[in-house]
Amino acid sequence: MSAATELTRAWANGAGFVREVERLSGQKVASCYQCGKCTAGCPMAADMDVAPRQILRFLQLGLQEEALNNSTIWLCASCMTCVARCPREVDLPRIMDALRQIAVRRGRVKERRVYLFHRLFLAGVRRGGRLDELRLVLGYNLRSGQLFKDAAKAPALFLKGKIRVLPEKTSGAAEVQQIFARWEARKP
C-alpha cells in the first residue's frame, strides 16, 4: 500500500492551481459537499477512470496531479445532467473545461485522441468557416491511426447525399479566420 497523501504539502503546492481552475470556470470548488448526485447521473461515468465527484474532491484538497491526469475530464460530454441536479449549483462541465485547458497548456493530455478530435474540429472551422464533416472524420481516422473506422458506413451516407465531397464555401470564412487570429494573439 502506498504512503498516505500528505495534505498540507498538497495544498501548499496546489492552491494556486485550484484558484486558476476557479477563475477559468467561475465556480467555487468548496461549494461541493460530495453527495455524488453528479456521478450517479453521469452517462459517461462507467467509462471514466475516476468519478466526476472525485475531480472536485481532488480540487478541494489541491491535488493537481490527480485532477489533471485522468480520462474523466476528457470524457465529460457536457450533457449538463449533473448541473441540472446538483444541489449546490456547481457547474461541473465548466470545471472540466478549465482542467482540459490547463492540461493542454501543460502538455498533460491523458486522452490524446479526444483532444485530437477537438483540435481537428476547430482547425476545420477555422479553415472554412463551416465544419466539413467528411474531412474531419477522414483527418481524425488518419491521424488517430484507425484508417478504416466506420468505413463501412461511408458509402451509404455518400449515396444518400449526406456527405459533401467538396467543402461548402462561405464568405464568412475570412471573418472566422480573423476571430481565431485575434483570439490566438491575445493568448498569454
Binding site: S78, F121, V125, R130, G172, V176
Partner: peptide
C-alpha cells in the same frame, strides 16, 4: 454567410 457555432470543441 453563417458560420459554425464551434460546438463542444
Amino acid at each position: 454567410d453563417w458560420t459554425c457555432c464551434g460546438a463542444s470543441s
